[in-house]
Write a protein that binds this DNA or RNA. Structure first.
Length: 597
RNA sequence: GCACCCGUAGCUCAGCUGGAUAGAGCGUUGCCCUCCGAAGGCAAAGGUCGCAGGUUCGACUCCUGCCGGGUGCGCCA
């Protein structure tokens, strides 16, 4: 039940009628007509810009088209009033029954209300993908929550969602991790290792891994060649750290369907890197060439030589990108190209990558590689590929500035002062972390104040929304004293006479509930879960407001001891409100409690 | 140097893909509990939407150029 789509459909049908009758040009291509709730309630329930957007293609004056449409709309039994306003808006007031049907729909459809019909299109969303070289810290948190909520949102909107985590378990960094683990292993055997050398991982979290290696192998590893030691240490460390990352994510209720190993690209008898390079070569996108020395490149590793390049400039990238290092091994980028090649082979309709702001410079080459492999074009501006077998969107989460009571918490990996994700969740709780991470546009920077998010009222929208849900629940508890049969699921509530909901505050609440499906569709299409968080805040505000009007004016109270039928109707409204809050919070991954602690 | 993001009320930010008189929270000022949960509500004050052009019926929104702030740049991962 989507009132907006319903009315849009009516208007589209009426425009076809007008074409058939010759009032509009028969060959007129109908543009997208919007129906929306006007800001000013005096402008009716809904407004459409149909006459204005049609004016140009029809080569008619907006007011003339509006006049034609007004006559047709006025004849619609569901529309009580139509007015032409401003440059050509059509302001409509619907008969109350249309709005009342929304309540019925919410109570009937339950948690399915507002969801997509299910086109069955598949979407692969990759997020977190933190290197398995240490525990999760707060910097990973935003992308993790955002990706998870976006997955929920797309799922709710009707997509078939696969959530994926790319494990960087190949390359020099994890080799260093392996060497670091072996140091801890020797330490656990009683050696004095002293200061951890520059370039290795000094974190305490590798000590248990060293100890576990002792338990598994005793002193036997010391007899093996260094490379073999390193490999064993590396594999043990990756496995242990990945477990830790999974459990860190679990504290935030975040899960992935697929953990994709970088190393698996080139093991098990296949070489996706070679295959992807071959695919690019077939399109003439591989060349030998030299790269300019980058600005500010100060270390001594630079070597000017001819090498294998991906011609990403052909799609608008700043420079061509190297695929092989001077030692003959693949670059990180080559692996990532292969990973996307593999993804495309798995055949999804849409792909989404969630990136941290520290990787924005990497975005163009990924888009370009994807477009080259999927056969599309690139819009660097929109950070997406267009056309081809499938399209990729890259979404960016800006940095989180961690604060405590207004003071910036400085983080440094070297000094070991980074804030562990698990500590934050332990300190402030899962719900506030999730909600606050989503209570901001993803590509705007976010201040996260550890002191403020635990406050139970001020500056803390999550409690405000949860309180609305709990309050709705408590009304039902109270009403049972007076009307024991008016339970949430009862037919008496479900079939209440909704015509009794006539107070302006109640009607506003209903109209806002009716907006939920449109909001979900818009948020999903634009990949913006934060819209949901703001909507829920707004809805809660309306609900709290209606409650308080009952404090001042007893006849507006939800429970009317003297009037059973009005009480039943209002309970239906409350049940619907509670349902939408609950559905919305579920998408955000935040609990909808029946009682505040 | 180049790319991207941000610039909206004193502060922190929304603004539903171009709609009508630009909104909310905090802060400030003044109100509302013998009453369904005051963890709440109502009201007032507060604006050259960074600046200048352009596109059109119409711009906070799209385009161009400036000015400020942030992030990034590799044969690293």
């Amino acid at each position: 039940m989507n009132v907006y789509r319903h009315v849009e459909g009516r208007i589209a049908a009426l425009l076809e009628t007008l074409k058939a009758e010759g009032a509009l040009p028969a060959d007129l291509a109908l543009p997208v007509v919007e129906v929306e709730a006007p800001r000013d309630p005096a402008h009716g329930d809904l407004a459409t810009n149909a006459a204005m957007v049609l004016a140009k293609p029809a080569r008619m004056r907006p007011r003339d088209i509006a006049e034609l449409l007004k006559v047709k709309l006025a004849a619609d039994p569901e529309i009580a009033k139509v007015e032409i306003a401003g440059p050509g808006f059509l302001n409509m007031t619907l008969v109350p029954q249309v709005w009342q049907r929304v309540i019925t729909a919410i109570l009937t459809e339950g948690k399915a209300f507002g969801g997509g019909t299910g086109s069955g299109e598949t979407v692969n969303i990759e997020y977190v993908s933190a290197n398995p070289t240490g525990p999760m810290h707060i910097g990973h948190c935003r992308g993790a929550v955002f990706g998870d909520a976006l997955g929920n949102l797309l799922d709710f909107a009707g997509f078939k969602v696969t959530r994926e985590y790319y494990i960087n378990d190949a390359g020099a960094q994890v080799d260093k991790l392996g060497r670091s683990a072996i140091l801890r292993y020797r330490e656990a055997l009683g050696e004095t290792v002293g200061e951890i050398p520059e370039g290795l991982y000094p974190g305490e979290y590798l000590k248990p891994i060293g100890a576990a290696l002792v338990k598994a192998h005793g002193r036997a590893l010391l007899q093996k060649p260094e490379d073999e030691q390193m490999a064993i240490g590396r594999d043990a460390a990756i496995a242990a750290l990945l477990d830790e990352i999974r459990s860190d994510l679990a504290t935030l209720n975040i899960r992935h369907d697929v953990f994709f190993s970088e190393r698996s690209l080139t093991t098990g008898g296949k070489d996706q890197v070679r295959a992807s390079i071959a695919a690019l070569e077939a399109n003439g996108l591989i060349a030998k060439g030299r790269l300019e020395r980058p600005k500010d490149h100060d270390d001594g590793e630079w070597e000017d030589r001819e090498q294998t390049l991906f011609k990403s400039t052909a799609f608008g990238d700043d420079a061509d990108r190297a695929l092989m290092k001077s030692d003959g091994s693949y670059t990180y980028f080559a692996g990532d190209v292969a990973y996307h090649f593999d993804k495309i082979e798995r055949g999804f309709d849409h792909y989404i990558n969630v990136f941290g702001a520290d990787h924005i410079g990497y975005i163009p080459r990924i888009l370009v590689a994807f477009a080259a492999l999927a056969g599309g074009t690139v819009s660097l501006k929109e950070r997406r590929t267009i056309g081809g077998k499938a399209n990729l969107d890259i979404l960016v989460c800006q940095l989180v500035k961690v604060m405590r009571a207004g003071e910036i918490v400085r983080m440094s990996k070297r000094a070991g002062t980074f804030v562990a994700l698990r500590d934050v969740v332990d300190e402030v709780g899962r719900d506030p972390v999730r909600f606050m991470m989503l209570y901001r546009k993803n590509d705007a920077p976010l201040d996260f104040d550890l002191a403020k998010v635990v406050e139970q009222s001020k500056d803390n929208p999550v409690f405000y929304v949860q309180y609305a849900h709990a309050r709705a629940f408590s009304v039902f508890g109270k009403s049972l004293d007076l009307f024991p049969d008016l339970t949430r699921e009862s037919a008496a509530v479900r079939n209440a006479d909704l015509a009794l909901l006539s107070d302006p505050g109640e009607l506003q609440l209903i109209q806002q509930l009716a907006f939920f499906p449109k909001l979900v569709a818009g948020a999903a299409a634009s990949r913006e879960p934060h819209r949901l968080a703001f909507y829920l805040y707004d809805l809660s505000s309306n609900f709290h407001g209606q409650w308080s009007r009952g404090n001042d004016s007893p006849h507006l109270r939800f429970i009317r001891p003297d009037n059973r039928s009005v009480t039943a109707a209002r309970l239906a409204l409350i049940a619907a409100t509670q349902q939408v809050i609950s559905s919305g919070l579920a998408i955000l991954g935040v609990e909808a409690p029946n009682m505040m602690r």
